[in-house]
Write a protein that binds this DNA or RNA. Structure first.
Lengths: 305, 305
DNA sequence: GTTGAGCCATAAAATCTATTGATGTCTGAT
DNA sequence: ATCAGACATCAATAGATTTTATGGCTCAAC
């Protein structure tokens, strides 16, 4: 037995409402002929005529009267369900982001995005594992790397370069180091951090630099930054995360030398045929946002130099 | 906006139940590949994945969980509705039949058909107008004519020939007429009936036969037959309608001469691609039935001659 | 009674979609 | 390690739907 010709039921619903093949065809963007075909298909399936053909259109037969409300209801239910699924899908943006980036960069700025798109609610999925986008619910992510993930579109956001920062009050009290080598005489916050030798090498300072401590967990940048901010010494942190403080002058970038592990922060999302609006909006916003800040940074530097 | 891909929903339902594309494909008699395609179609429409792909099959995502019961319900409702429509269509046979034929021939015999096909209930639509089969609900009809209706398949059932009948008691009392002309001396029931001159002409009896009354309504055959049966005289009726009485000997066919208006009773039904079972059953039964009786009649005649 | 507008049916052709079949990849289990 | 089970993908194909064109029917207007 051949099964219910589902394609016919939408046509049936339209015809049942409009009582007219031609009008239904218009509504469905098809020809009257196609409507006729589909209705016949359904009538063959039903084994009985569903419409009575009149001179000025059609009318439901008793059997058609039975089918019509059931079909209308079924279509409405399914339509409504998918509408709500789509709505949720479009209105909730889930971003997988590592803790550091979220707390140091994204969280303070996300309110701007929410003002721009109040209809989109943002949810952070904070974890350090590399999420699989094929897994349910993650729309995009912020990753640290080189921008060459297969199957993912990526946009470079920020360098992960790090550089020494100190507060004006500290500099006032202890004097501002004039050369990178001068830093060796300063109070370095986390002097054992293995990022220091990297930075010093970048700055051209040679010497036996002990690295007794394992690499500082990147999540403590906030802590280091906080100490530096309160005049506790010179901190080595990702400058991008303290952009606001640098701009505000509450932290001073001592040299224009940034060391880097060679990786950058990227916005990534699956290479899809069609990008959903919410991801597109977010991409546009975050690339604008990080780009503008970098320009700003460059201008500041120019003034300083 | 493209609309809900209805073809996908049956596939979705199957996959949701079986949690497995391959098994669903088997159930639906299609390939796993096709199932994959259809599900993708639906997921594109939904704007979100509906299934989570696992190593040993698939699982519904939260959004899929929302859609699944709605779709299952919708499909079940529609399926059930059409099933019941089809069932009614198959189990009720509506026959358009003129009153005379119904009461004189069909009604007494229909119980035999019902014994043969107890699952089919029979409904007579009794009216003299020629019903339009495109109008709802008439499956077949009995018509009086020449069997050449365009668009209709027709099967000849009975001649509408009429002949004089009388009861044995009448014949015993008044003697059996030996020639058609003898009838002029008998008590003719409805002597003004304009069928009499037709019959006499057929029988070769000439003479000035007055026809003062308009043709007797065909529906009174029952009445005429009743009078003849009770010995009230010689009645001119369609012999086919009194076959049982003739066979039983309660009415005697006086001569083997039948006059006819040239028309016959036909079973007719629309020329359809595929004839429904119930109509086919009825056709087989009624043609067998009338054929058997006619054979019977012929045999009787042969014995008489 | 004729004519015309509106509407559905139908047949053949065109189009587009769905399905297949082959192949690739991934994940557990043996 | 290899294998079986399962989904994804691609190009080719079969098949279904849709269109185009036409015909017939009914009602209404002239």
């Amino acid at each position: 037995m051949t099964s219910l010709p589902l394609g016919s039921i939408r046509v049936f619903d339209s015809v049942a409402r409009l009582q007219n093949f031609t009008k239904a065809a218009e509504e469905l963007n098809m020809t009257q002929s196609a409507v006729s075909y589909q209705i016949k298909l359904l009538e063959d399936f039903a084994g009985a005529p569903l419409f009575q053909r009149l001179a000025r259109g059609v009318a439901l037969t008793p059997k058609g009267e039975i089918a019509a409300p059931v079909i209308r209801r079924a279509l409405a239910d399914m339509g409504e369900t998918f509408r709500s699924i789509r709505e949720e899908q479009n209105s909730v943006l889930v971003i997988s982001v590592i803790h550091t980036f979220a707390s140091n960069w994204l969280t303070p700025r996300i309110v701007d995005f929410q003002n721009l798109h109040p209809e989109i609610s943002v949810r952070f999925d904070i974890s350090s594992r590399l999420v699989d986008f094929s897994t349910e619910g993650i729309d995009c992510g912020i990753r640290l790397g080189k921008g060459n993930w297969p199957g993912l579109t990526s946009h470079r956001l920020l360098s992960s370069g790090f550089t020494p920062l100190a507060s004006p009050s500290y500099l006032e009290r202890y004097g501002r180091p004039q050369t990178p080598a001068d830093l060796l005489k300063c109070h370095l916050i986390t002097p054992d951090d293995n990022w220091w030798p990297v930075w010093f090498r970048e700055a051209g300072v040679e010497g036996p630099l002990t690295m007794t401590r394992p690499g500082v967990a990147i999540d403590t940048q906030q802590l280091i930054g906080g100490l530096a901010l309160s005049g506790g010494g010179v901190g080595l942190v990702s400058s991008a995360f303290f952009q606001n403080e640098i701009e505000a002058g509450t932290l001073v970038k001592l040299f224009d030398i940034e060391a880097s592990t060679g990786t950058n922060y990227y916005l990534v999302y699956p290479e899809a045929r069609k990008l959903s609006d919410k991801v597109r909006f977010f991409r546009d916003w975050i690339t604008d946002c990080s780009c503008a800040k970098q320009k700003c940074l460059n201008i500041d530097n120019r003034f300083k130099l």
